[in-house]
Write a protein that binds this DNA or RNA. Structure first.
Lengths: 92, 92
DNA sequence: GGAATATTTAGACAATTTTCTAAATGTACT
DNA sequence: AGTACATTTAGAAAATTGTCTAAATATTCC
């Protein structure tokens, strides 16, 4: 997916908190879930939004599923913001 | 308003297009509106979301209202993204 | 003051999103 | 095979959002 999916994914505070949480390293769905006051099903939904946006990767490890950051897609975002800030070389 | 308002404002493609449009300089609500295939009322709504997020400023000039970029609030966004990318000095 | 133009506000409606509960899937252990 | 645990999927309810039409506000010009 794309640009728009990435922005949408980042627009929710729970999803940003999940990304912040994963800064310290990969975590299982359960560990992530227990950081929030919502059901595991809801957290699982947020994880799938982040995954579809390409912001995280998942990997099954036995009984658990581990999630980790994949921040390469953020380059598009930072590039767009930089462009807005006048980094464009040939402006009118 | 804050961080969350800024992210929310940026999550809509029309609103990002408005910001892109304003890169070339201030424009009236009417000029902005005629760039999109939606009613002026709808564009006005998007402008108010952007204004409440602090991303644009408005100034009346006679019969018109001019909008211009105010990108200082984007620093919070880029700062957060940079933090995610491991710019944090004391990570575990 | 009254008409014309520019824009916003109010209220309604449809689409999307967030959240839940309940059921399904996948894995490990005995 | 059966039970327990970890997680997701399905489906529904509630909240939010994007859009429209119609009415309101603000400004200019005659």
């Amino acid at each position: 997916m794309s640009f728009q999916a990435t922005f949408k994914a980042l627009s929710d505070p729970t999803r940003r908190a999940i990304l912040d949480l994963l800064k310290d390293g990969a975590k299982t769905a359960g560990e992530i879930g227990s950081s929030f006051e919502m059901t595991g099903a809801t957290v699982s939904h947020h994880l799938s939004v982040l995954r579809e946006a390409g912001l995280i990767n998942d990997e099954r490890r036995g009984k658990f599923i581990c999630y980790e950051l994949n921040l390469s897609v953020l380059d598009e975002i930072t590039g767009w913001v930089a462009g807005l800030k006048g980094a464009d070389p040939h402006e009118k």
